[in-house]
Amino acid sequence: MIAVFQREFKSYFSNMIGYVVVAALTFFLGYAYCAYNVGAGYPYFGISLSAMVVYLLILTPLLTMKSLSEEKKTKTDQLLLTAPVSVTQVVLGKYLAMMAVLGIPMLISCIYPLLLLQQTYHSLLIDYCCILAYFLLGGVYIAIGMFVSSLTESQIISAVLSFAIFYLMSIMQSLTSHIPEASQANAIGFCVLALVIGLLIYHVTKNFYAAAMCFLWMVIAIWVIYFIDNTLFVGALAKVLNAISFSNGISYFANGIFNVTDMVMNLSMIIIFVFLTVQSVQKRRWN
């Protein structure tokens, strides 16, 4: 794992991507600090960080796009998969290398709260928790991006798809505000969601019956629950979809609230997507 980590980390700085990501994030963090903390006089660094979420959307796909797709395309994965290391170790090595690249601008940003202390009294703890939350959010994006990268051989597809997913997640709240409250409409919405899941299952397993049965059971379950107690469905779809959009969690931190659920949510998202990436790499060997 350490060998993979070292190689990956080095490879980001043997081409431009590593430098671009570090430089861009450092620049925008400095810019946000100047604008919000120096210019507008906010006493929290978290305010600047919550404005920086949008740059993660753009920069993390750059980091993750080639992580696994490139190996598959150039067949260098043959070296990794025939070496006496497990797939989990390889994937973790890669994941940690990307986190380390992201960690560089995060470390640099640790100076800002100290600078801020010179000007005004504020809680260092809140600021550093904010930086940690931002770093973890980046970790979630990297985990998802890595998973997307493991699905394709093309860097471009991987980058565009990851960006689309991140963008969708970040605008989820404004999207869900347009979903009607009525329970019947919500039940139909869940059926559409079931269809999407069914199609995904079919795409992954290529097993029509399994996908169809999954879809069917989900639809039956939805309508059974609906007929038992349809009040459960009032505004439910919006709630579920909002739960997936975790990028807004950072605004709690920005306002000085240490939100444990958000932390747990982000950590579990990271674990789930690293696990899924391992499974996706394993699956390649079977078909």
Partner: peptide
Amino acid sequence: PLYMEMTVEEYLRFAAKL
């Protein structure tokens, strides 16, 4: 299975660690 951005020695060192 070669990593183009590495030198021969770096690559072999990496393979040895793997």
